[in-house]
Structure formats: structure tokens, C-alpha cells
Simulated assay, not measured.
Amino acid sequence: MDHTGAKSPRDSEVVMTQLILPSDANNLNSAFGGKVMEWIDICGAIAAQRHCREVVVTASIDDLHFHSPIRVGWIAQLRARVLAAFRTSMEVGVTVHAENPLTGERALTTSGVMTFVALNKDGGRVMVPPLQLDTEEERVAAREAEDRRTQRIARQKEAQAWLRVMAR
């Protein structure tokens, strides 16, 4: 038994299913990107919360890519899991696959990486459990998450200049 409090990425895994209705669609008869982003945010937050068992908030969304549309009447299946745990934050990967319910055809439609921060009841940051990396695939994903975190922190510092311009 692991006594470090570390948790497996599999313990955080979330699967959500959505039916694309006309109210979810744009004038091209496919899901609004913003609606898909909403589902991704919810799915990712559930995964982060499962890992730390605390309230979480979205800190950033990185590398959000729309690969193909999801048509009205099709099924969207979202999968999320924690890829890396830092001190008070976690990186979560989310994928969305679309399924044509009449043919069974499936395709990757959207993918993204998000960072969530764990908060206590007063809104202060709290430590998150470490991630127990059992497979080489999990170790590679965690190393890549570390690299993205370094890049994300650098971009946040660079953004200060344009934020000052926008504040005028």
C-alpha cells in the first residue's frame, strides 16, 4: 500500500457523454466551440477535484485544439485525467471524441490541456497529493506537463506587458 498519499492518474479519470442538440449548435449545424469548451472545463474540473478532493478553479487552458466538428444528433464523449500534480495545481488532459450514433463512426474532435488550482473554503491555495506514476506513458505525460508548466509560467511573465497596454 502507498503511504505517501500519492494517487494514480486512473483514479481521477472522468468520462462524460453529451448529445449534441440543436441548441448546442452554430449555423453550420455543428457544436459551438464555446459549448464544447464549457464541457471540457467541467470534465477537467471533476478530474482535478477527484485527485485532490478539494474545490478547484481553472487557472489556464493550454493547447486547446478543434480537430473536426461534432454534428447535431451526434454523441460527444469527453475523457479527462490528471497528467501531473504540482504543489497546489494540477495539469489535466481532456479529449473529446464524436460518434455518429447511426454508423458508429468515431473521431477525435477536440483536445486540450488545462491547469486547475485547489482551494480551501476561504479561497486560499492548498497542497494537492502527488501523482503516482506507474507506467512509462504516465511518466512521459508528467515530464511533458513539467515542460508545459515552465513555458506557461514564462508566458505569464511575458503577458504582463500587453496586460498593461490593455489596461489603458
Rank of each mutant, 00 (worst) to 15 (best):
M1G: 15
M1C: 14
G5I: 06
A6H: 08
A6D: 08
A6E: 07
P9C: 00
P9Y: 00
D11M: 12
S12L: 09
V14N: 05
V15H: 07
M16N: 09
I20F: 03
I20T: 03
I20M: 06
N26A: 07
N27G: 01
N27W: 01
N27I: 03
N29L: 03
S30M: 02
A31S: 03
G34D: 14
K35W: 10
V36F: 03
D41R: 02
C43K: 04
A45K: 10
A45W: 09
A47N: 12
A47F: 15
A47K: 12
R50H: 10
C52T: 06
R53K: 11
V55A: 00
V56R: 00
D62E: 08
D62I: 04
D63K: 12
L64Y: 03
S68A: 01
S68W: 05
R71W: 11
R71E: 14
V72F: 01
A76C: 10
Q77M: 12
R79I: 13
R79S: 12
A80V: 06
L83V: 05
A85P: 05
R87V: 13
S89R: 01
M90F: 04
V96K: 01
V96A: 05
H97A: 06
N100H: 09
P101Y: 10
T103N: 08
G104M: 08
R106V: 06
S111K: 03
G112L: 00
G112V: 00
V113T: 12
V113R: 05
V113W: 08
M114V: 10
T115V: 14
F116D: 09
V117E: 13
L119C: 02
L119S: 03
K121T: 15
D122L: 06
D122F: 02
R125A: 11
V126T: 11
M127D: 10
V128P: 04
P130W: 14
P130F: 14
Q132H: 15
T135W: 06
E138Y: 03
A142T: 02
E144M: 00
D147W: 11
R148L: 06
R149T: 12
R149E: 15
R149W: 12
Q151E: 15
I153P: 15
A154F: 12
A154N: 13
A159T: 11
